[in-house]
Amino acid sequence: MSFPAVLRSEWTKIRTVASTVWTLAAAAVVTVGMSALLCVFLNSQFENMPKEQQLAFDPTASSFAGMSLGQAAVIVFGVLVVGTEYSTGMIRTSLAAVPRRGSFLAGKLLVATALALAVGLVTSFVSFFTGQALLGEHSIGIGEPNVLRAVFGAGLYMAVIALFAMGLTMVLRSSMLALGILLPFVFLLSPILGSVDATQKVAYFFPNVAGSRIMQTVPAVLDGSEPPYGPWGGFGIMAAWAALAVVAGYAVLRKRDA
């Protein structure tokens, strides 16, 4: 059984369930919509902001602000791609058809991550240009230093957060369990830890916190809370988390009975 065949099969599987369309569409719409709203608000309130905030204003990152919410849909996408195999019992049919479990896992993750990357890139570019159009005189061009990196980075962020979710679901073998851990982690734990001085340094190394550094073009120097890594360093930390989750997921898939 050739690997391209596994890829073709996984592509058929992923494009023929409604949840793929809904989750990815939600991710794009929520990200672009929320970012646009925030940009309109920032543009109108810019003069009322404190001086420091005006100086540290990051128009690029502002146009991705909606991604903090949109990533929830990406996480749900990743969890469902893997989790529905287990919840429906499809995993047994899949593994009876692909005896080599490594091929099965690699094929599934590759197809789903590539799809998340494609949707992520489209979303990040649309979100960026929409946001800049709405920011008016405070906007920034895509040719400015670091801006293109941030736009690509936003797309990559979506792909890697999806991969992380898939790996974790592979370990837990349950959509409910995976969502029950991932969503509170991203929306409760990391903001709470990140806002307390004592624990902020821990939160810096969470995948979503570290990874989102790549979307910023202006370092947050003013409040002295600059994380100990650069944009790509942060992205690397996030990728390491995803890699860890995938390796653990593979170990579970190999070892455990389906």
Binding site: K13, T16, V17, E85, T88, M90, I91, R92, T93
Partner: peptide, 15 residues
């Protein structure tokens, strides 16, 4: 042991 959201034909096609 099939994904209920997939159509019969595409289920078979993927395999």
């Amino acid at each position: 042991a099939v994904h209920g959201g997939r159509r019969a034909r595409t289920h078979l096609l993927s395999i």
